[in-house]
Amino acid sequence: MNKIKVLSFSVIVLIILNLSMIVFFMVIKPREFKNFRNGSRIIIIEKLHFDEPQKKQFRVLIEKHIQKIKIYESKILSTKENLYLQLSLPEVDLKTKDSLISVLGDLQKQIEIARFEHFKGIRKICNTPEQIEDFKQLTIELAKKIGEPNPNPKK
């Protein structure tokens, strides 16, 4: 083989590899992330053995919960921006800084209350003794996982 044939073959192989990578990242990877994000929903539905009407109630509950959490997260982001803007001032106003940090604590508290209420709502969907017992087991698992560090933090 002469150099031109080797070079042409190499270019063709590289093009095929690049196209494969593009397909992988555009088609296959997003599916994995979607399934990962929905993983906890699927686990709850499976562990609690929800029927179709319960699944529908659960989906409605989740949507309301997500909307509520997004509002709190948006407020947290805005408050953090205001807090760290204090650093750009010649003199940091300690009252403002303390006030913003207090607001952040209150917002985080509201998120925890919303999550707690969300799980109380899931408990209300359970309508058989078996589901209630499964929910108890699920909350025990949840309580153990709450203190664990997130293995897949948002980036």
Rank of each mutant, 00 (worst) to 15 (best):
M1K: 08
N2H: 05
K3W: 06
L7M: 12
S8C: 06
I12H: 04
I16S: 10
L17W: 07
V23T: 13
F25K: 06
F25C: 04
V27I: 15
V27H: 07
I28W: 13
I28R: 09
K29I: 15
P30T: 13
F33L: 15
R37L: 10
R37W: 11
S40D: 08
I42N: 08
I42K: 12
I45G: 06
K47E: 11
K47D: 10
H49M: 10
H49C: 03
H49A: 09
F50L: 05
D51P: 00
K55W: 00
V60G: 00
L61S: 07
E63T: 10
I66N: 15
Q67S: 09
Q67A: 11
Q67E: 10
K68D: 03
K70I: 04
I71F: 02
S74Q: 09
K75H: 09
I76K: 02
L77R: 13
L77A: 15
T79L: 03
T79R: 03
K80T: 07
L83D: 05
S88F: 13
L89S: 15
P90V: 10
V92E: 08
K97E: 11
D98W: 00
V103F: 07
G105M: 04
L107M: 05
Q108V: 03
Q110N: 14
I111Q: 02
I111W: 01
E112S: 14
E112C: 04
E112N: 12
I113W: 00
I113F: 03
A114C: 05
R115E: 13
F116D: 03
H118W: 03
G121I: 01
K124V: 05
I125R: 01
C126G: 02
N127M: 03
E130Y: 02
Q131K: 00
D134G: 01
F135Y: 07
K136H: 09
K136V: 10
K136D: 14
Q137R: 12
E141A: 10
L142D: 05
K145P: 03
G147D: 11
G147Y: 09
E148V: 13
K155I: 15
